[in-house]
Structures are given as structure tokens and as C-alpha cells.
């Protein structure tokens, strides 16, 4: 099982991601610099969090136009799982691999705290080790996490069971104060139609061992890394 973590200028959660994947799978992923001419064949591609290109123009906009994204789009179309966390989610939306856009938090404030997420679907390798409706803890740290899309796309996401996670309170209820960024329909993470591309604002890689204060993010990696190893 080989995985790759793509590093752009301004990525800053790449090391957390590499550590998490190594911890869970026992094998360190490749760190692939965005300008490397060839991405080796891998079983999982991860775009980590950070501030690629300083969030110039729009978060993830410049990274999404880098040539490596064409390779990632081709691999995704061929069925390779792609995970985008935080700036990675923004980049996947800007690249058109996921629908919608992540706008400035409704509060206009950078939000760095722990939230609760409800697992809305277990119908993908990323979430299959969770229970549907399960409430997990997860850290967030972003200024542009306010997911927006048109009504038609939102209806598709719901009808096709493509909302992976929603922000909820500790009891699993959707409330205004549980949503850290004003995201439409309390959406924290979504899947593509083929269900092999997941984008999410929260950072499961930062909650995988007791020293992190919990292990709620671990099963996401166990799911996807276990699947591609099989």
C-alpha cells in the first residue's frame, strides 16, 4: 500500500498527515512536491491543510491550477481515492473535483477549536469504520470553511448520500452554535459522485492517538488505508 501527500508552497499540515498515515498504516507516505514531474503510482492521494500560495486570489485557487492537479484528476477518475483536508478541500472544490466553494467564515474570524461531527454516511471507504449517525470529535482550524453551493447541487448531495460529515453539538443535534463557519446545511465534508474523493474542513489527522487527546479521527485512516491495502 502506497500513499502520497501532495505538498504545495504554503502547505503546513503535510507533516501531521504524513505522521498520521505512518502511525495508522505502519508505512510512511511519499511526500510529493507539487512541481515534481511525475507522481508515482499510489493507492491513496492526500492534499493536506495549509495556506497554499498564501490563499492568494481565493483559498486553493492557485494550487488547483497546478499541473499536478490534472494528474490527480486523472487518478481520481480511474478510481484512486483522494482525500482533501481543509486547504485540500478548498483545492478540490476549486479544481472541480468536488462541487461548491468554501467562502469566508460567516463570523469573519479564523476558527481554531474542537467541533463535533456527525457521520452522515458510511457508504465510502473513508467512513466505513464509523457507524452512521455516530458523533465524533474533530479539530478545525480555518478562516474559509463556509461551504456554499446552489440549491440544485445541495439537493444532489443530499439525495445521493454524498454529505459525509455535518457539524453538530455533542448530543448530535444541528444547532447554529455547533456550526463553526456558517456552512450551508451544516456541511463539514462531501464526497464526489463516485465516492472516492472526500473533502472535509476538519482535521481527523490531528486526533488519532491518545496524546492528541483522542482517537476519533483514526478510523477514517483505518478505513481508507485498510481498503487500499486489501
Amino acid at each position: 500500500m502506497k500513499s502520497a501527500v501532495v505538498v504545495f508552497p504554503g502547505s503546513n499540515r503535510d507533516r501531521d498527515m504524513i505522521a498520521a498515515i505512518e502511525k495508522v498504516s505502519g508505512r510512511a507516505p511519499l511526500a510529493v512536491w507539487y512541481a515534481d514531474p511525475d507522481m508515482p503510482p499510489v493507492d491513496l492521494i492526500v492534499i493536506p491543510g495549509g495556506f497554499s500560495y498564501g490563499d492568494y486570489l481565493r483559498s486553493g485557487a492557485i494550487a488547483a491550477r497546478a499541473p499536478i492537479m490534472r494528474t490527480i484528476a486523472e487518478r481520481a477518475a480511474a478510481g484512486v481515492p483522494v482525500l482533501g483536508i481543509c486547504n485540500g478541500f478548498q483545492t478540490l472544490c476549486e479544481a472541480g473535483l468536488l462541487p461548491g466553494v468554501l467562502m469566508r467564515n460567516a463570523s469573519l474570524r479564523f476558527v481554531c477549536r474542537e467541533v463535533h461531527l456527525r457521520v452522515e454516511t458510511t457508504g465510502c471507504a473513508f467512513t466505513e469504520r464509523y457507524r452512521k449517525g455516530e458523533v465524533i470529535r474533530c479539530p478545525v482550524a480555518h478562516g474559509d470553511g463556509n461551504y456554499r453551493t446552489d440549491e440544485e447541487t445541495l439537493a444532489h448531495l443530499n439525495d445521493e448520500d454524498r454529505v459525509a460529515f455535518r457539524y453538530v453539538d455533542g448530543s448530535g443535534a444541528r444547532t447554529a452554535s455547533a456550526n463553526p463557519n456558517g456552512s450551508i446545511d451544516d456541511i463539514a465534508g462531501i464526497l464526489n459522485r463516485r465516492r472516492n474523493v472526500l473533502g472535509m474542513m476538519p482535521h481527523p489527522e490531528n486526533l488519532i492517538e491518545p496524546l492528541h487527546g483522542g482517537r476519533d479521527g483514526r478510523r477514517l485512516f483505518e478505513g481508507i488505508l485498510g481498503r487500499v491495502a486489501a
Binding site: 486570489l57 485557487a61 461548491g100 466553494v101
Partner: peptide, 9 residues
């Protein structure tokens, strides 16, 4: 179309 604007929004 390709870069300066995100035509979703």
C-alpha cells in the same frame, strides 16, 4: 472563466 473568477459564486 478559468482562474480569475470562481463562477460558482
Amino acid at each position: 472563466e478559468k482562474l480569475l473568477a470562481n463562477t460558482v459564486i
